[in-house]
Design a protein around this nucleic acid. Structure first.
Length: 136
DNA sequence: GTCATGACAAAGA
DNA sequence: TTCTTTGCCATGA
């Protein structure tokens, strides 16, 4: 995509969202779909933040919307590694939304990420910035 | 169409 | 430094 479309705010229609929730192929890119796509690009053993994804999509203030998007990520295929997305403190704020409360931490440790007390250790070391890795 | 909620983030006290 | 307040986007009632 070009920088112009990214610079602008990306509107997501309710119709597109419904399609996503229905696991149907969306013709037009929605905010949610873009979030899922970025999350899928996160390498194994790396993590990023809601704000970083939002910033990459052009709206760094829409970090809440990113979190909301991941709320429905469980219905999406291919699988979205939502466990690699945490808040800016490196805390597993979304662990409660997984199948089991320990599922998120388990997946991360399986990838070599150390989680202590619901927080990722050496967070800056594991941090993966889409702006830097994918280019802006 | 207005109001309240949320897997967040940055700024102020 | 920690706690509180404000902003922003998208959704659901």
């Amino acid at each position: 995509m070009n920088s112009a479309s990214r610079n602008k705010k990306i509107p997501s229609s309710a119709a597109a969202l419904k399609k996503v929730n229905a696991i149907s192929t969306t013709n037009g890119p929605s905010f949610f779909e873009l979030v899922y796509q970025v999350v899928r690009l996160i390498p194994k053993g790396r993590v990023t933040t809601y704000g970083a994804i939002a910033a990459y999509l052009g709206s760094k203030q829409s970090s809440r919307a990113v979190g909301y998007a991941l709320n429905g990520a469980h219905f999406i295929k291919p699988k979205v590694p939502a466990q690699r997305v945490v808040n800016r403190n490196g805390m597993l704020s979304g662990k409660a939304h997984f199948e089991t409360p320990t599922r998120m931490q388990e997946l991360l440790e399986k990838e070599g990420v150390i989680v202590k007390d619901e927080t990722i250790q050496n967070f800056s070391k594991h941090f993966w910035d889409p702006m830097q890795e994918l280019g802006f």
